[in-house]
Amino acid sequence: MWRATYVTDTGKLYPYISLEVSDFFLPIIFTANAIRGAGFCTLPRNIQPRQAILWDTEGGEHKIEYPFRPASAEWIEFWREIRTNPLIISSKGIGEIRVIK
């Protein structure tokens, strides 16, 4: 578990949000912007955080919930680090999901 300030797609900030992270590979930009340990707050129930889903060279699947707003410098660096890692053979992102109730 890691915690960070989550920036929604609309730019709203939520500090100290818990993020579920597989420790298989963590981009440097992620560890520079997050702290190991559970957060103190949660996102509203209608927001599900963005995820990077990674597959390693042995076919294992790993997930990283990440706090960076799409197209931000951090988001670009996060995906650059993933795509240049030789241990990751495939990756995909799931965007922030807003649940309408």
Rank of each mutant, 00 (worst) to 15 (best):
L54H: 08
L13D: 12
Y16V: 03
Y16P: 03
T10Y: 03
N85D: 08
I76C: 11
F68E: 01
E20V: 04
G11Q: 06
R80L: 09
T5G: 03
G39N: 12
A34V: 01
I89K: 15
I89N: 13
I97A: 09
Y6P: 04
G60N: 15
A71N: 02
P27W: 05
Q51L: 02
R36M: 11
E81D: 06
I47D: 02
G11H: 05
K92P: 07
F24M: 06
G59C: 13
I82Y: 05
A32L: 15
F30L: 13
G39A: 08
A34H: 09
L87E: 13
E20Q: 14
T42L: 08
R83M: 14
E20C: 13
R36K: 15
L87W: 07
Q51I: 07
E20F: 14
E74M: 07
A34R: 08
R50N: 01
A71W: 09
A34F: 01
F25Q: 00
R45V: 12
L19R: 05
R36P: 10
T5P: 02
D9I: 08
L19I: 09
G59T: 03
R45N: 14
F25H: 12
P15H: 13
V7K: 14
I97K: 08
I28G: 02
A52C: 14
T10P: 00
R80K: 03
G39E: 12
I35N: 08
V7T: 10
I82F: 08
Y14D: 03
L43F: 07
P44I: 12
I53C: 05
I35A: 14
R69Y: 04
S91N: 03
A52S: 12
N46M: 04
T31L: 00
S72A: 02
S90D: 05
E74Q: 07
K101M: 03
A4I: 10
G11C: 12
R98D: 01
I64N: 08
F68Q: 02
Q51Y: 04
G60C: 11
E61T: 11
L13Y: 11
S22N: 15
K12C: 12
Q48Y: 10
P70G: 00
G59E: 05
R3W: 00
Y16Q: 13
T5N: 10
W75E: 10
F68V: 06
W75T: 01
V7M: 13
I82R: 08
I28F: 06
P49M: 00
G37S: 09
E20N: 11
F24N: 06
F24L: 07
R80S: 02
W75S: 06
R83W: 10
W79A: 07
I29W: 07
D9P: 02
R98T: 09
Y14T: 03
G93R: 13
D9G: 11
F24A: 06
S91R: 02
S91M: 10
C41T: 15
R98E: 04
G39I: 05
L26S: 03
V21E: 03
L13Q: 15
K101V: 14
G11F: 08
A52V: 07
L13K: 12
K92N: 15
Q48D: 10
